[in-house]
Amino acid sequence: MTGEDKELFASGHRACAGCGEGTAVRQILKAAGPNTIATVCTGCLEVVSTGYPETAWEIPLIHAAFENSASVASGVEVALKQLGKKDDVKVVAFGGDGGTFDIGFQALSGMLERGHDITYVCLDNEAYMNTGIQRCSSTPYGASTTTSPAGKYSIGEQRPKKPIGAICASHDIPYTATATIAYMSDLKKKAKKAIETKGPSFLHVFVPCPTGWRHASNDTIEISRLAVETGIFVLWEAEDGDICNLNVTVKPKKRKPVEEYLKTQRRFGHLSEEDVKKIQADVDEKCEKYGF
């Protein structure tokens, strides 16, 4: 086995059956190649892949804490420069949505601003899944989580998803992209581009979570596809922080109604027709902005 078929994220990791992160990490590590050092923040990915004395990582990995994948990676990158190895070795920092949108946001902003040659990958499953599905600033409007439960007086999460990609791009970094696992060649291409880009790059990867979103384990890829086909999650890339001229890489010819996406997941199961209409209107407005 050589090249692309060489698995750098080994089997035997303990992610839930159908976990989108498993797929994403396998592919991103293949894009990065074996001459890579990774950092990871506390969360599902770290817990399922590093239980001592086992590790799923075939490349060097360091996990330090929840909020600092980006700053640990900064130290790694500068040390590599000092050792004269930076030209050969890539640095990829992984974070979940909690470790990226919320608690690790400051460290991420610092890493991007300082211009380190690091690819930051956010694996976004839209809530704190490792601690049991708590609301995050990545959680979309209307989703029921354990800390934004739907109830008689609540529709679940009441705030829209934080636009992390645009915020990161606004640091005027060389490359920013969004991707999801259903669109495999798009994901591979963007991962490769992000990793090959000199300087900081940010890759926002949308990864469905069967446990937290309460969907069938075999629906992971289908839901990731529906998110794009409905316009819920837009696949784009931007160079040099130019979010006014971003390139939408996958434009569905005819957008499907958001209901088709929402009905696949029980976290949205409580939504009324009115609620779905509101979400549809929000998505319509967003897609108009993106030009499709």
Binding site: A10, S11, G12, H13, R14, S49, T50, Y52, P53, E54, T55, A56, W57, E58, I59
Partner: peptide, 11 residues
């Protein structure tokens, strides 16, 4: 842990 890929021990 220098045993890279040792997660394979867990089936």
């Amino acid at each position: 842990n220098k045993d890279a890929g040792s997660s394979r021990r867990y089936k």
